[in-house]
Write a protein that binds this DNA or RNA. Sequence first.
DNA 1: TTGTATGCGTTATCAC
DNA 2: GTGATAACGCATACAA
Lengths: 329, 329
Amino acid sequence: MATIRDVAKEAGVSVATVSRVLNETGYVHEDTRKRVTGAMKNLNYSPNEVARSLYKKKSKLIGLLLPDITNPFFPQLARGVEDELQKGGYRILFGNSDENAEKELDYLNTFIQNNVVGIISATNNKSKTNYDGLSIPVVFLDRTSSDYPSVYADGKEGGRIAAGEIVKRGSKRITLLKGPAHIQPALDRFQGALEELSRSDIDFHVMSTTSFAFEDAEKWAKELFSMYPDTDGVLASNDIVATAILHEALRLGKAIPEDIQIIGFDDIPQSSLLFPSLSTIRQPAYEMGKEAVQLLIKLINSEPVHQQHIQMPVTFIERHTTRKVDTNG
Amino acid sequence: MATIRDVAKEAGVSVATVSRVLNETGYVHEDTRKRVTGAMKNLNYSPNEVARSLYKKKSKLIGLLLPDITNPFFPQLARGVEDELQKGGYRILFGNSDENAEKELDYLNTFIQNNVVGIISATNNKSKTNYDGLSIPVVFLDRTSSDYPSVYADGKEGGRIAAGEIVKRGSKRITLLKGPAHIQPALDRFQGALEELSRSDIDFHVMSTTSFAFEDAEKWAKELFSMYPDTDGVLASNDIVATAILHEALRLGKAIPEDIQIIGFDDIPQSSLLFPSLSTIRQPAYEMGKEAVQLLIKLINSEPVHQQHIQMPVTFIERHTTRKVDTNG
DNA sequence: TTGTATGCGTTATCAC
DNA sequence: GTGATAACGCATACAA
């Protein structure tokens, strides 16, 4: 690896001059500028970001902390983050926390140790104390916070919409699935649905799905139909769980959406490829990622920020696990 | 942020001594060691990885380059990589290349500029020249290479198995889907299937699916059934495409697996949640990620490596888009 | 057993 | 316009 010194020697100038042409700071004669850029080309020079980072006490790195990239909701988020970050020349230091406070703290520390200039975190740990005392901006993604800037979907409204739509379409014995209690967005959508359901005259059960893991989804599905066999409407905690419910319902020979209606949450890409395709509440994951980055970059640059808390809209995606509203039963 | 100098002052020793206790190198009296660790605690000191990296010319960072984390096959890989890397205290600098040579080169450059000690790349670009002249170890993941260490599944064998199984189960008019020509693993599985099919007396068509994107999957599915409406067996280029085919077949009122058998490739997590659940050729993605890291770390440490090219086994996962072999038609 | 001094590759502050 | 040089935080060779 060629260093700035090598370039300086090759071009017959001082390192200061090389640095000037590199950063386009200060005056430098056109001729020498050419000699320098020529030397850079010759030596295939590119500046050492580490040295730069050490001196300036700031890098072009940001830390991205996700609960688990294996959950199909997060790749979308991550992609939004990356695409937007790339525009500003930032790079991603990446980690999965598994919603584990210790792992989270560990990653946070190494982010700091590597001079990241900002952090985007989508973890839902109670221990926000992990973030206190950080001298760099943090924005929470898919997570509300009064203390920190955040970008999140309107889960409560999503829950309300889902409940409203399923009731409007004629389900009478609804099962409401409650996601993990420690995950705020899951709680929000649950509470929204609960609120809306309570407002109606419909019977409903609440059942807890204490994880969003693929391996467990099937278990919840079987449990649901063994406990509430006459359910004719399911409000799932997310699309994974909804997929498993759909699978099990079909396996049991139920007609969808005639016997049972199902509404998911998230609108992960594969939901439209199910058969019948899954009606769901869409969160604009990719856009949320981008939004979070835009906010973070403003913060990094100490630009004025109008909104510290950005709530993104959710929408009902009507597909084929719900009946048409005209032909409701 | 406290520096080593602050700690030294607080403990009343020199920075060298602090460095010694930090790295457990050289002798240091127990008493002073305690004073130093105490001071570290007091000041909440943790070493600056950037300075360290600059001095030692090596970091605890590795670069991970994926085609697109949004493709459900890759999160598994990524997770395997991360989990294994974590054990060694390494962190991930992450990027998606979109199989775009320019983006790839861009990421590679910034990896180098940030002093990564190794790179794992799952891109399938022809331009392996991007990697020549790198002074750090690279291992290719999900990609064969004679020039570089690599970890990949036996795609050709997978293709053979898939073809063999669908023939054995009685499909007579098979459509073989060919993935993007520039993606070697897709080509391998195609060629394996082609080979096996050619060996039989079965009629078959070949149709190209030139991308693995969700948005296109539906298009391939419709195209397939409009071009080859009497197909009774589909060998899909991956599980996404298979999912779309299944969806379309069901939509057309075909009975699965009686009218059509479908076999996918990858065994992404959601495949088992489809209905009917998808028969597929499993690649051990998570394990492949781990394997790649183990190889990379040996390379980084200049340890002897028995196998530069690790081929992982693929297996047929029999689910419900294929008929039982006893009751074949 | 401990301290001093040097350098890792850059940028920025001064002189010239 | 350009060039020395100090400094960023750390690890090491060498002295003491």
